[in-house]
Design a protein around this nucleic acid. Structure first.
Length: 414
RNA sequence: GCGGGUGUAGCUCAGUCGGUUAGAGCGCCAGAUUGUGGAUCUGGAGGUCGUGGGUUCAAUUCCCAUCACUCGCCCCA
């Protein structure tokens, strides 16, 4: 067992669980298409530069979490740690900026070299949307409303809270950063070690420190919202008003910041209490400077990403999969006919389980375990008259029915 | 990357103050039932006690290391 195990932080996704994943991704795509977004897939690896340039040097993702390697030609390659950078790279290298606004949905595995725990894996799955080329607040509103709808259709919106904040434009943020650093510098002695390091590197991050002493100090710290310039404040007010109009509930959280450097203005997170330390289910925000940072034409963007594995943990009721029909030869002489009939029914669109062996009793047991809706019993006596026995596995009632009427009768079970 | 906890059957877990054949429930397989499932009864298979090393006459049990999971931190979906 020790010698043959999956790489740390990865695991096999068995049929039961992958059904949840598909259900989630399908809901995401369905909702996104309703907003006019199309699915797009970018490679799961890129030149390392794509990520190191976009995520920002202060990000831990870049400094210690990237799955990077050199390929045979000596190129520095990184398994994607998130989805936005690849989409933006595609926008630039594929000339997609000719077709703005670009509205895309994506979904797939991401990789981060982190210490695994519940809801945090080294290979995990995200889905997300990006809206590029729309600077207006209506873009943020649309994207957030879409997120709420996805969660709602999955039945987990009620288990989450939407937290919302604005981190303003660069001017606002710079002013605030200075005020915050000035304030916190007075408490250098009392700050936690982590926060002290962040004071130099990424002071805004101190705002969501979980350290008790830090939190106490932060109670009287200046608020980001007080440092938004007029334009930033107006933009944020418009976003809030739009969400109000759509009935999307949110909670303002002045301490909400973003981990990645490229965000500005509206930042949001749907969080849940049920996931332990990894409370964030879906998160996003605006990133107006990202495309230009990567060398593309100045293009505003907004979007979000959601953790599929995390949502799967929250998903309680899975819709029943298509219940199969069991085709059962009563005696071995009927096996050939059972095979033929199964094939016919499958071509007609039924999910058919043809047990591979066993007597009638065994096969019925198996059908029961598969939660088959009905069993078609092929017995010699009925077959001689061109009939089969159809058994309703929920009620136990059965009837003899002519083969030619079977398909129509079976349809009633679905 | 840092700190704590846990690793015994497919799953959930007992147990061994170090001592002969390591247990239960669920699940699985078979029989009772060679043309009738869900219930019940009977029987069976399945374990290098995570891995490696140390101490010992003897280690699944004690010690160390390591790996994995888990809780928290960092960070993040």
């Amino acid at each position: 067992m020790a010698s043959l195990q999956p790489v740390r932080g990865t695991h096999d996704i068995l049929p039961d669980e992958i059904r949840r994943h598909r259900h989630i991704a399908a809901a995401g795509l369905r909702v996104a298409e309703g907003y006019g977004y199309g699915e797009m897939a970018t490679p799961i690896f890129e030149f390392s530069e794509v990520f190191s340039r976009t995520l920002g040097d202060s990000s831990d993702i870049v400094t210690k979490e990237m799955y990077s390697f050199e390929d045979r030609s000596g190129d520095a390659i990184t398994l994607r740690p998130e989805g936005t950078a690849g989409i933006v790279r595609a926008l630039i290298s594929g000339g997609l900026s000719q077709h703005l606004p670009l509205k895309v949905f994506y979904q797939g595995p991401m990789f981060r070299y982190e210490r695994p725990q519940k809801g945090r894996l080294r290979q995990f799955h995200q889905m997300g949307v990006e809206l590029l080329g729309v600077a207006e607040p209506i873009g943020d509103i649309e994207v957030i409303a879409m997120a709420a709808q996805v969660l709602s259709e999955l039945g987990i919106l009620g288990a989450t809270t939407l937290e919302l904040n604005s981190i303003g434009d660069t001017e606002s943020r710079t002013a605030y950063r200075k005020a915050l650093v000035d304030y916190l510098s007075a408490y250098r002695e009392k700050l936690s070690k982590d926060s002290l390091a962040r004071l130099e590197r990424n002071p805004l991050r101190i705002l969501d420190s979980k350290d008790a002493a830090d939190r106490k100090i932060l109670e009287k710290a200046p608020l980001l919202s007080d440092y938004l310039n007029a334009e930033s404040a107006e933009i944020f007010a418009a976003v809030c008003a739009g969400l109000d109009r759509l009935g999307v509930a949110y909670q303002l959280n002045p301490r909400l910041v973003r981990g990645l450097d490229y965000y500005c203005h509206a930042a949001f997170e749907f969080t849940s209490e049920t996931l332990g330390a990894q409370g964030t289910v879906l998160a996003g925000g605006r990133y107006d400077s990202l495309v230009a940072t990567m060398g593309g034409p100045d293009t505003p963007g907004t979007g979000w990403a959601a953790g599929i594995d995390r949502m799967a943990l929250m998903l309680k009721d899975m819709p029943m999969e298509k219940r199969p029909v069991a085709v059962i030869p009563v005696s071995s002489s009927m096996e050939a006919e059972a095979l033929r009939l199964s094939q016919e029914l499958r071509h007609d669109g039924f999910a058919v389980d043809l047990g591979y062996r066993g007597n009638l009793s065994k096969r019925l047991k198996r059908a029961n375990k598969l939660s088959a809706a009905a069993a078609v019993l092929l017995g010699e006596d009925e077959m001689a008259k061109g009939s089969v026995t159809l058994r309703d596995l929920d009620t136990g009632e059965q009837e003899v029915i002519a083969l030619k009427n079977l398909q129509a009768r079976l349809s009633a079970f679905h």
